[in-house]
């Protein structure tokens, strides 16, 4: 994907009835730069997390990569094809799951939907039987496929959605918020499955999510996008490192004088209780602890790292997105 730009023209108006009437005659348009100069390469068999706040351009990227949208400028090559030009050949090799939309026929048992998909994708019956058996086993679909889609729970439906996107053995799987609204058990089931798929079938997986645990559990590489631009492209560890390695020390103590070690910031200071942020590049945790315990009598001390959520949050802040 190279220098891809997509601009949407969006009619804008203030709320209120009179404004709505006015807008009927005179529309104000704003150009929304959904994507500006987005460039990246993803290798075969890679698993990439694509993160960014709402409206950053994640879904637009997925839609361009999957051939649904045509970008205004720039080029994009997936498996040697331009997705929007060679749509039919392209979509045969990709699977797409939109977490918030269903691709199953609402009123019939899931198995019926699968069979129609088999015919749409012209899957060889023998191949289809094998794939379905494997997916049924891995995703524990057994009884579920005989139930109409509308009667499934969200977790069950998501498993079926994923299976439906994989019936034709795609080389690339796009997952747009696959764990949205799922309970803990279903989330873990979905994650485990994606991991297995990537490991055993060497399927390239591109995942957008707001759930940083998805990212932590699944992906090596992370792309951070904001306001239509790629801001960061690296491994999760790099992303963490870039933001510095701060640890939070919470200390309960007796005694009054509290000497703050250099390279540590006092976040909270009450009599007998203090919270410090320590930059571990300068001062290791054990050094900090010994420095503190040399000045006061420590009753209790706890060390916590910054969670990935917090890291990403501070990244969003850093880039002002």
């Amino acid at each position: 994907m190279k220098n891809v730009t997509k601009t949407f023209r969006v009619a804008k108006r203030s709320a209120g009835f009179s404004k709505a009437v006015k807008a009927l005659f005179q529309k104000e348009y704003t150009d929304i730069h959904a994507l500006q100069d987005v460039t990246f390469t993803i290798k075969d068999g890679e698993m990439v997390g694509y993160i960014g706040p709402n409206g950053a351009g994640k879904s637009s990227t997925i839609k361009i990569l999957s051939g649904v949208l045509t970008p205004d400028s720039g080029s994009c090559l997936v498996n040697g094809r331009i997705p929007w030009k060679d749509r039919v050949a392209h979509v045969k090799e990709i699977g797409v799951v939109f977490g918030q939309r269903s691709q199953l026929w609402w009123d019939v048992p899931v198995a019926d939907s699968f069979e129609l998909l088999r015919d749409i994708y012209k899957i060889d019956p023998e191949q289809y039987r094998k794939t379905l058996a494997r997916l049924t086993e891995l995703l524990d679909l057994g009884e579920i496929v005989r139930t109409p889609a509308r009667q499934l729970s969200l977790g069950q439906r998501m498993r079926c959605e994923i299976a439906a996107s994989l019936l034709h053995n795609p080389k690339i799987l796009f997952l747009d918020e696959p764990t949205i609204g799922l309970d803990a058990v279903s989330k873990i089931a979905v994650r485990d499955f994606i991991k297995t798929l990537n490991r055993e079938e060497k399927t390239t997986v591109i995942l957008t999510t707001h759930d940083m645990q998805d990212i932590e559990a699944l992906t090596e590489r992370v792309l951070l996008i904001g306001k239509g631009r790629v801001l960061l492209d690296g491994t999760l560890a790099e992303l963490k490192k870039r933001h510095g390695t701060y640890k939070i020390l919470t200390v309960d103590y007796t005694g009054n004088a509290f000497a703050v070690p250099p390279a540590a910031d006092l976040i909270e200071n009450l009599p007998g209780h203090a919270v410090l942020s320590v930059n571990t590049v300068v001062l290791s945790v054990s050094q900090a602890v010994s420095a503190i315990s040399s000045t006061v009598e420590v009753k209790d001390i706890s060390v916590t790292g910054e969670s990935i959520e917090e890291t990403v949050l501070s990244l969003y802040k850093e880039f002002d997105i």
Binding site: V68, V88, K92, I94, F98, R101, Q103, I120, Y121
Partner: peptide
């Protein structure tokens, strides 16, 4: 409803 997206994702006309 966004169903057109899904249509575009299937290898048929």
């Amino acid at each position: 409803s966004g169903d057109l997206d899904r249509i575009l994702l299937r290898p048929r006309s």
